[in-house]
Design a binder for these strands. Sequence first.
DNA 1: TTGTATGCGTTATCAG
DNA 2: CTGATAACGCATACAA
Lengths: 343, 343
Amino acid sequence: MATIRDVAERAGVSPITVSRVINDSGYVSDETRREVEAAIEELNYVPNILARSLRSKRTHTLALVITDVTNPFWTTIARGVEDKAVENGFSVILCNTDEDPEKEQSYLEVLLQKRVDGVIIAPVTSHGANLHSLSRLGVPYVVIDRRVEGMDTDLVTGDSVGGAYELTKHLIELGHRRIGIIAGPEQVSTADDRLAGYLKALEEFDIPVDEALIKRGQFNQEAGYELTKKLLELEERPTALFAGNNFIAIGALTALWELEVRVPDEMALVTFDEIPHLSAVYPFLTVAAQPAYDMGNIATELLLERLDGRREENREVVLPTRLILRQSSGVEVGLDMAMSPSF
Amino acid sequence: MATIRDVAERAGVSPITVSRVINDSGYVSDETRREVEAAIEELNYVPNILARSLRSKRTHTLALVITDVTNPFWTTIARGVEDKAVENGFSVILCNTDEDPEKEQSYLEVLLQKRVDGVIIAPVTSHGANLHSLSRLGVPYVVIDRRVEGMDTDLVTGDSVGGAYELTKHLIELGHRRIGIIAGPEQVSTADDRLAGYLKALEEFDIPVDEALIKRGQFNQEAGYELTKKLLELEERPTALFAGNNFIAIGALTALWELEVRVPDEMALVTFDEIPHLSAVYPFLTVAAQPAYDMGNIATELLLERLDGRREENREVVLPTRLILRQSSGVEVGLDMAMSPSF
DNA sequence: TTGTATGCGTTATCAG
DNA sequence: CTGATAACGCATACAA
């Protein structure tokens, strides 16, 4: 590939002059500029950003470290991040940890080596041990979705406590007293918070807590499936279920289907997180939807502020969830009922 | 951040010795190695890959250029790419074009500047004008999902003709004669091919082609929604619909829902592409599923072969689609029927 | 308005 | 086994 020197030679000027043309910096006569541009054209010259970065110490690259792009929640966050990043001249490297601390660790290692300017990360562990390497080396980062114990960082989350409270309250107001909850894994703040919101609602309505109704597991379909079956084996079955996230809800629906327990006729079901494409077609799931796109967008904005030095102190942004009521929570409904699910 | 020189100084050796330790190349005495490693530890030294790349001309970074991560089809491809890439020590930069040629162009520009080692791309246009910049500069790339007119490249696609043929044949064998099709956009080979497969099946069964039943539009929900409504306004309504991809199918289902036309009782529906989370809960959609993960995986493998110089000639890989029969294509079914959708 | 010298952090080459 | 030197491609500081 042609270098800045090749171009310079061709145009009969010095490399620095070419640099000035490319970056529109300093003075260059129109005549010279034209000649340089012609040379660039002829040689198909493309500036080498690596070399530039080596000098400038800026790579204009961000990393987004999430658990799994396959989940629409993260996908939407990814779009929010990418759109904002590109808008500001940054590229995004995407990393999937699959909730595996080692993968997270090894990704961060590579990202540091690549000298990304900043990182947006949903940490796998609540102690965030892996984040220390970022701090130590002074690489700015924003934590997204989950809180990390005892670390003061920029943070963007959805309001898990509030959303869970609303969902639970909604069920209670519909008359449910035995509400099973399948929260996410131990050690993940979103799961803890959703459980807290659930408990808060129960307390407010003086409903005794039954530990048997509280299950925890991974944020995936398998856990939703298995734990739903467990809940339905109880002597005193719950009349409503609260799924800790969208994948758990799908697993729960699958289990209910198998057991021929109809939603919502025989079992109410609510969940955290929207399931975009499902809801368009099967509008039977009451959800607390997080503004995932905005979460990504805002996290990126916070990160960019840091990079520019526009801000020093940490910020925590908690975005409200939106309660979307659908038939799953207790109204008799049939598939052939006319409804207009929106896009 | 500490540099290789800082480490060298600390360990009382020369930079090149440190380099040897890091890269496990050349001879280094155990004693020296230990001291260097200690110094690396103490200084939190992280090698600067930019500098290394500047010399080696290898960035160990690939780019994946797709239309939209929000679509589970692309998401799954992305995982296939990422897993294979990481396995081989490469990072992935993800780019969404939203089917916009200008976005595609500007992304490619940036990727060239970043000197990515290779690109996996689903080109927006069938002439692939933007790909020429890659060829010209000798950057290896693999085209995925869609063919490009008159360009000889590495290519990985699903068998659109075959899949569409199977889907159509299936409908015909169930007795359908008026089958509406909502193919994707003009100028996109997958859309053309799916239409071709549809026509091939009709011809084979001596069913006359009715142009009124053939619609084309974007591969998104809006198009599926609008064109389904158009098809249902016909004097002679179709009895079955063929959606060109998963998003079109969702739009179609939404429209049918609004019009109170029940699937499959009053209208059969089949589609290209699986809709993973929907199918787990709403198992009423017969689909031709593409092996998206494998597509990504194989595309990456082809690219890596190129990078290693393990292969010179181009390869075209066409992966078979898998016909997944579900109730949507013509069997009377109710929501409360016991079925065991699989994960 | 243009050019020279220099350094960013690594590693290849060649010596010792 | 270890080191000195130079070069990768570009941009900053300073001159002319």
